Amino acid sequence: MGRITGRERERNEAALRAAMDRLLSGAIPPGGGCDLKTLAAEAGVTRTGFYPKGERPGPYQHLAEEFERRRAAMTEAGQIPDPRDAQISRLKRQNAALRERLAERDTQAAQHEAFKRRAISQLAAQHEEIQRLRSTSLETGNVRSLRSGRQR
């Protein structure tokens, strides 16, 4: 690719600015994003113009920096132009909330398990005490069985 004329450069810059405005307003093409690659494709220029060429800046590097700056400002203000970025942010928030709920449920399950172990242990101890008292009462012989009203 050879050098471009001043008129072509102006046309490309105008196309880049128009594409920049469209992308930042949320008009993202299918399969694209709010990024330099999509910006270059929408404007019909190569994205190599956004990057420095050795010691000298790229012909559209200033527009790339402006685009990045405007996109960062919008993101900071809570206006995310790229629906994928908004979806990623939403999914990260949901993931954090679900992890928190899962940790709470794990804590509750551990507490219920400890309660169940204590209850079973207490029931076993009570059962043993009842068995011991029954055997002691039968050995001493001073306990009589009472008939209930139903057995008569």
Rank of each mutant, 00 (worst) to 15 (best):
E129S: 14
A86D: 00
G33D: 05
I80E: 02
G49K: 06
P30K: 10
P59M: 11
S137H: 10
I4A: 06
R69M: 06
L133A: 08
I28L: 06
A114M: 09
T75S: 12
Q151M: 13
G44P: 01
E128M: 10
A114E: 04
G6R: 10
G26M: 01
Y51C: 03
S135R: 13
G2Y: 02
A109R: 13
I4G: 05
S121K: 14
R93M: 14
A124K: 15
A18M: 09
P29Y: 00
L123R: 15
E10C: 08
R9L: 07
A96G: 08
A124S: 15
M20Y: 08
D35F: 08
G44A: 04
E10I: 09
I80K: 04
A73K: 07
Q108F: 12
S137C: 11
P52E: 08
T48W: 11
F50N: 01
G2Q: 04
I120K: 15
D35A: 08
R101C: 08
G32Q: 01
R152P: 07
G78T: 04
E10W: 08
D35W: 01
A97I: 07
L91T: 07
P29D: 00
I130T: 12
R22N: 00
G54C: 08
A27I: 07
G49R: 01
V45C: 04
A96S: 11
A97G: 04
A119W: 13
E113D: 12
R147K: 15
G58F: 02
S137L: 15
L98Q: 05
V143S: 07
R69G: 02
A110Y: 05
Q126H: 15
D85M: 13
I4P: 02
R11M: 11
A27K: 11
D21R: 14
F50Q: 04
T38C: 04
G26L: 05
Q122C: 13
G58Q: 03
R56W: 04
H62A: 11
P30N: 05
N142V: 03
I88T: 14
V45H: 05
V45Y: 06
E139K: 12
R150D: 09
P57Q: 08
R90M: 10
K92A: 12
L36V: 00
G31Y: 02
S25F: 07
E13H: 06
S145H: 12
R93S: 14
Q111P: 05
L16E: 00
T5V: 04
E100L: 13
G78Y: 02
G33H: 05
E55V: 14
Q87G: 11
E129W: 12
Q111W: 09
F67E: 01
G2D: 02
E65Q: 14
R134W: 13
A73N: 06
A14P: 03
A43I: 05
